[in-house]
Nucleic acid binder design. Sequence first.
DNA 1: CTAGGGGTACGATAGTTGCCGTACCTCAAG
DNA 2: CTTGAGGTACGGCAACTATCGTACCCCTAG
Lengths: 100, 100
Amino acid sequence: MEFTVPDLAEVDLDRVLKSLADPHRRRVVLELLEDTSGAERACSSFDLPVSKSTRTHHWRALREAGLIRQRDAGNGTYVRLRLDEFDARFPGLLSTIAGL
Amino acid sequence: MEFTVPDLAEVDLDRVLKSLADPHRRRVVLELLEDTSGAERACSSFDLPVSKSTRTHHWRALREAGLIRQRDAGNGTYVRLRLDEFDARFPGLLSTIAGL
DNA sequence: CTAGGGGTACGATAGTTGCCGTACCTCAAG
DNA sequence: CTTGAGGTACGGCAACTATCGTACCCCTAG
């Protein structure tokens, strides 16, 4: 089952920049960006040095910033970037940040 | 007298994104960016709907993010973007955000 | 059936942020 | 010299954020 994500039209730049202003979250986004296949990836495959509940918190922040989609597969959850949608709403932002 | 600003090498992306994640501060930066002359501008010339002390707070945030320089002229203070320096440290970031 | 991995929700806490008012400074104009 | 505009520093407050632990859920491997 898919987690509900906001329509990108309703996401504002404030929320996006705030969400990207966290090193853990930015790292996750960059890792997803590096995998050009755009394939889904297990949430557990990122080694974030925080507790489980904090991880959940960060995934929510990224979801609410329109950056990711998440799917709950019962045992694990999977994540993928909303790359095209996001880039249509905030053109160039991700690639610029990826380049820094 | 110039306010002391950080060396851009010591400014991290976190601080920059946080500083740009505020609508008042982002608006100021964009206004400065629009004036291609790069000339100094009076701090008082921005009509920020906040108190004097809050304004001071925002200017400090922008200074510490390496985005601006400020000069105290006794009666008023003046501000200018650190455009070239900033762009050398975070290439494309400002123009991307300006384009959104 | 029972463990264990992966995950959410909730509640708590410490630190940060945006905001304000007050006190005080500096220069320019009257 | 006094007033006013523009500004800083400090202290306080409310809201938000990053973090955690605990309780609980779902699925798979034994």
